[in-house]
Amino acid sequence: MPYNIQIINLLASLLLLIAFAMLSQRRILSLINLFAWQGLVLSLSTFVVAYSTGQHHLYYSAGLTLLLKVLLLPWLLHRLMRKLNVRWDVETLINIPATMLVGIGLVIFSFNLAAPISQLSESITRGLIGIALASVLLSMLMMLTRRKAIPQVVGFLAMENGLFFAATSATHGMPMVVELGIALDVLVATFIFGIFFFQIRETFDSLDISNMEKLKDD
């Protein structure tokens, strides 16, 4: 069994690493590729958990993740970028080092928060709740620091990845009906985001969210 644990821990650290890479990635196209890689890591770790615990429904989850987050969603995003003609967009990010430092702070915070829980767990994957929480918070930070619509959406989806990692690896998978429901919600959300991209571009002539600051309480 120790091999399985080490593989899952390795994949967990990869997940976190990719979350950091996304935080500093300025090219939107590479950002989507990173998101696909993160999905692949997630799918692999789910597969390993399924194998080592013998839970059959986790194989379906792994397959579903592969299909949805590695193939379908990145393909949809690529298609959208072609249609919107923003394939080579680069975002000007202010102060990447500072963002990274905040990110490290978030990781420490989540590890501290999860420490008492990790001690309770007898499952093979204890300690992963901290990593999952860290990658959720990092994706959230990414959404906060971005000014363009597509990176914000990628952040949203990456956050879902972190949550899915918590659900499959830290616990042994949520009940199947819940997982299917979550997957459906993510899929519908992506379609609606797609509709929004067109509405935003039509109205504001760009996908820059910083154009939207009319609604404020003075």
Binding site: F196, Q199, I200, F204, M212, E213, K214, L215
Partner: peptide, 9 residues
């Protein structure tokens, strides 16, 4: 514009 902004938010 403001309704799209509200919905996005």
């Amino acid at each position: 514009p403001s309704s799209i902004e509200a919905a996005w938010k």
